[in-house]
Design a protein around this nucleic acid. Structure first.
Length: 313
DNA sequence: GCGACAG
DNA sequence: ATCTTGTCGC
């Protein structure tokens, strides 16, 4: 039952969110902190993570949050965690993290508990880092809350601080000749907020890379490039593919019955009729079931009186 | 009224 | 984010 789109938050909520972003932003580290980041070939880097959230078609609440870990430099998936979640916050440009990040933090926590040896050394995040209205995009947010190095990888330019996807910008894109070519995205303040990167020889549309946490912009761009078999970096791409697949497999049985819990969430299975093309009857497996929900409405809780990272490495 | 708007 | 399979091209 597709719940209705969450309404735009009241302005008090937005001001709380802005305050929380400002407090957490003070904790961002925008330089290399790990030895492998300085190495030309990233020697010492073995695991790169990717996160993504995919949505159910007619439903603005149900989604699948996924975390994958790939080996480096082989870029083979060595860990996958997909989980259905119930989003509470609506999408508001500039506040993406408040919608998605609680579930991504939870995924990282599960990984730390179950497979500490597979915790990634860096996370590629679908969205921006410092390239953001207030310099604190989802990649920064997730980085601070997990204390993991994070890179923001956006597919579209966030037009902020004077940055515009205008004719001049498109001209610069046209000058990107080969995979790895890039140019800086300089905000009105003169600060370099990120880089436009041609991630692949056969890709015209650039990626917009920015620092999330505990990595320099130079290393962030170089690593993003090093993760691209196609336009989208493999960790993010795999997280996206697998979360979508998970949703497809879950659609036929939206409410996985947890043993011992007969919370009848009324979900009508497709009737005998030819309502829908069924996938191969693949029972929900591997990971936990039951939509999880972000704890109590964020907007009712006072902004972080304490701004400590919830997970320390 | 019109344009902008990461995912 | 999502709506959508096959098809054309390198």
């Amino acid at each position: 039952m597709a719940r209705e789109a969450a309404e735009l938050p009241p302005k008090e909520t937005l001001s709380l969110w802005i305050r929380e972003q400002a407090q957490l932003k003070a904790l961002v580290v925008d330089r290399d902190t790990e030895a492998w980041q300085r190495d030309p070939g990233f020697s010492g880097l073995q695991r790169v993570g990717g996160v993504d959230v995919s949505f159910v078609k007619g439903d603005s609440v149900s989604a699948c949050a996924s975390l994958v870990v790939l080996s480096y430099p082989e870029l083979e998936v060595v860990y996958e965690d997909c989980r259905m979640v119930s989003l509470t916050a609506p999408y508001v440009s500039g506040f993406l993290a408040f919608r998605e990040v609680p579930f991504l933090v939870a995924a990282v926590r599960r990984l730390r508990e179950k497979e500490p040896g597979l915790v990634p050394q860096v996370l590629l995040v679908d969205g921006n880092g410092l390239l953001h209205h207030r310099g604190f995009g989802v990649a920064c947010h997730l980085g601070v809350l997990t204390d993991l190095p994070c890179i923001g990888v956006a597919k579209k330019l966030l037009q902020v601080d004077g940055l515009e996807n205008n004719t001049q910008h498109k001209e610069k894109i046209g000058l990107l000749r080969a995979g790895g070519d890039s140019f800086p995205l300089t905000g009105g303040s003169g600060t370099v907020l990120g880089m436009a990167l041609r991630s692949h020889d056969h890709s015209t549309k650039p990626l917009y890379v920015s620092v999330g946490h505990k990595i320099s912009l130079e290393a962030a761009v170089r690593l993003t490039r090093g993760c691209c078999r196609f336009r989208i970096p493999e960790p993010v791409r795999q997280a996206d593919i697998r979360s979508r697949d998970y949703i497809r497999r879950t659609l036929g049985a939206p409410t996985p019955p947890a043993p011992g819990q007969d919370r009848s969430q009324k979900v009508q299975r497709p009737k005998g009729g030819s309502e829908e093309l069924e996938d191969e009857g693949r029972p929900p497996e591997a990971h936990g079931q039951g939509p999880e929900t972000a704890e109590s409405p964020r907007h009712t809780r006072p902004a972080a009186a304490s701004v400590e990272p919830s997970c320390a490495q």
